[in-house]
């Protein structure tokens, strides 16, 4: 130890300064490495941030698309005077839609009396709504969950079906027809 100390002293001033600088840099790197391992999430955090950034970008893209759609009823099937969505638009609108208005729920309830009963008893209250794009079937599915006490029995009913039409308000889109038959 004493020998290496002495040999270090024998080095020229610039070499000693450079060695010191390298030493400090290594120390900083080690410190950050240790701190990152203790407090940081490293790759996991970067991956999360990337996903979030992609989600925001996707949302912006969808919002731009929604605002470019004509206001009114948008359908995914032929035979009406309403605006017909292309396959690409249908998928995009499905992914951007979150709301299901009352008439769409009431329409789906025609084929599900139990859901209608719970819905009516509970003052038209809906526990949960969902709109999902199914990549396998290449279709948009929407539905809702109603729950409550029906003649002394606690019941939960999920109604779901293909979302075939939407309402574009110019600000957002809403599921307008759930085909559950």
């Amino acid at each position: 130890m004493e020998v290496s100390k002495n040999s270090f002293k024998t080095l020229s001033e610039p070499v000693r300064q450079f060695s010191g600088l390298v030493g400090i840099i290594i120390l900083i790197f080690i410190t950050f490495f240790v701190l990152n391992n203790i407090f940081g999430e490293g790759d996991e955090l970067v991956a999360k941030m990337k996903i979030e950034e992609e989600r925001i970008a996707e949302e912006r893209k969808l919002n731009k698309l929604i605002s470019s759609l004509p206001s009114g009823v948008l359908v995914s099937f032929d035979g009406t005077d309403n605006f017909k969505l292309s396959d690409e638009l249908y998928k995009a609108v499905c992914k951007a839609t979150k709301l299901i208005p009352q008439r769409a729920i009431m329409g789906a309830n025609f084929l599900n009396f139990r859901a209608h009963e719970i819905y009516t008893i509970n003052g038209n209250k809906i526990d949960e709504t969902f709109v999902k794009w199914d990549d396998e079937k290449n279709k948009c599915f929407a539905g809702f969950v109603v729950s409550g006490n029906n003649v002394g029995v606690d019941e939960t009913v999920t109604v779901s079906g293909e979302a075939l039409s939407f309402l574009s308000t110019g600000i957002d889109t809403r599921v307008y027809f759930i085909k559950n038959f």
């Binding site: 035979g79 025609f110 027809f177």
Partner: peptide
């Protein structure tokens, strides 16, 4: 129905 399907027949209390 909005997609062109129909139900024609008897109704009671708002249901088929």
């Amino acid at each position: 129905f909005p997609d062109g399907s129909t139900y024609e027949g008897e109704w009671a209390n708002g249901f088929m």
